[in-house]
Each structure stands twice: as C-alpha cells, then as structure tokens.
C-alpha cells in the first residue's frame, strides 16, 4: 500500500508524519508538493500539520486553493482514505471536504498540551481498531483549533455519525467538545490533535500508545494488517 503525504509551503509536521509512517509502521510513503498532482496508485492521503502560507487570512484557507486539492477532492469522492491533522484538518474544512470551521482558541493563545480524546465513531478507516468511547491520550498544538458548527449542522453531523473524536474535557471551547469529524461517507477524517506525536514510547509520557491504532486502523482497512 502507498501513502501520500502532501506538503504545502509552511507545512511543518510533514517530516514527522513521514517518519512515523515509514519508520514506525513501515509503510511505503511519498511526499507530494502541493503544486503537483497525485498519481492514481495512491491508497491513502495525509495532510500534515503546520502553518501553510503562514496562517495568513485564516488557517488553511490559502492552501485549500492549491492545485493538489482538486486531486484530493477526486480521491475523496472515490472513497480513498484521507486524513487531515491540525493544519491538514483546517485545510480540509476550508476546502469544503468536511463540515464546520476552526476558530481561534477560547484562550486566544496557542496551546501545546496533552489532552484525552474520546472515540465517538469507530467505523472510519482511521478508527476501526478502537472501541466506542475509548480514551486516547494525545497532544494538541494549535492556535486556531476551536471547532465550530451551528446548531443545525451539529444536529445533522450527529445524526450522520460524523463526529469522530471529542475531548474528554473542555479544552479550547470547541462546539460539543469536538476534536475531529469525518465526511458523510466516513473516508475523509480531520482531527486537531497530533497522532504522529504519540506513537513512539520514547517521546510519549503515557505508557501505552493507543494513538498508534489510528495508523493501524488504516493498515487494517487496506488489508496490510490483520
């Protein structure tokens, strides 16, 4: 299986993601510069974190107009698993692939800390190895990470099971403590916390590393792991 990591000007978690995919999970991984198209033989796409275009105007909004996004949209329609982490999530939202928006944190500060996620949907390609309501310790690092949707949309995404992760406590003022959502088909997932920062014991202060299963879920879905 082949995974593509899309690199935008200002992406800064691309190398971390690449390291985890190749050295920890031994997946065939390739970088794709945002001005180039994605080849047809890619099995999954990851949009990593960072500050694409320096977060100018609004986090993710400029990158959402990159040439590569057209291919991402096509792949999303075809049902190919796509994961956006942090700035990647912001880009997917700005590109209209996921519902809602991401606003400045309630504290108005950048926040770098460990939080606990609760799994709300274990049917996506990135969560199929979790039990419902399982807890995942994981770090966040963002300034615009407060997920917001209006009441009507909230009702709708609840109904369609599009809430994938919630924080166990109030972290940044997100609507309904939402930390990650998916599209209606469930193949496109966006999340603010950084799973790539929590899959190795050396850098993970919490003993077992449940966020590894975000990547293992993908491997199971693609049939490279039982």
């Amino acid at each position: 299986m082949k995974v593509g990591v899309v690199v935008f000007p200002g992406s800064n978690c691309d190398r971390d993601m690449y390291h985890v995919l190749t050295d920890v999970f031994h997946l065939d991984t390739q970088y794709f510069w945002h001005e180039k198209g994605l080849p047809k033989n890619i099995d999954a796409v990851i949009l990593p974190g960072g500050f694409s275009y320096g977060d100018r105007l609004r986090a993710g909004v400029i990158a959402a107009h990159s040439p590569v996004i057209k291919d991402v949209q096509k792949m999303a329609q075809k049902g190919i698993p796509i994961l956006g982490v942090c700035n990647g999530f912001q880009i997917l939202v700005e590109a209209g692939l996921l519902p809602g928006v991401l606003l400045k944190n309630k504290s108005l500060n950048f926040m770098c800390e460990w939080t606990n996620l609760i799994v709300e949907n274990n049917k996506t390609p990135f969560t199929n190895q979790f039990k419902i309501h399982e807890k995942i310790p994981i770090p966040i690092a963002n300034g615009e990470g407060r997920y917001y949707v209006d009441n009507e949309t909230l009702k709708e995404i609840k109904k369609k099971n599009q809430i994938v992760f919630r924080y166990s406590e109030v972290v940044n003022g997100s609507t309904n403590k939402i930390a990650g959502v998916c599209n209606e088909d469930g193949n496109v997932v966006g999340m603010m916390p950084h799973p790539e920062r929590a899959t190795e014991s050396e850098i993970n202060p919490i003993d077992n590393k449940p966020s590894s299963r975000i990547f293992e879920s993908l491997m199971v879905k693609m049939g490279v792991k039982n």
Binding site: V20, G49, F110, E113, P139, R197
Partner: peptide
C-alpha cells in the same frame, strides 16, 4: 504551553 515544544518529535 504557548510554544509548540513537541514538533519535530
């Protein structure tokens, strides 16, 4: 906590 101290893993 306002500084990203984990990026770069």
């Amino acid at each position: 906590s306002q500084y990203d101290h984990e990026v770069g893993i």
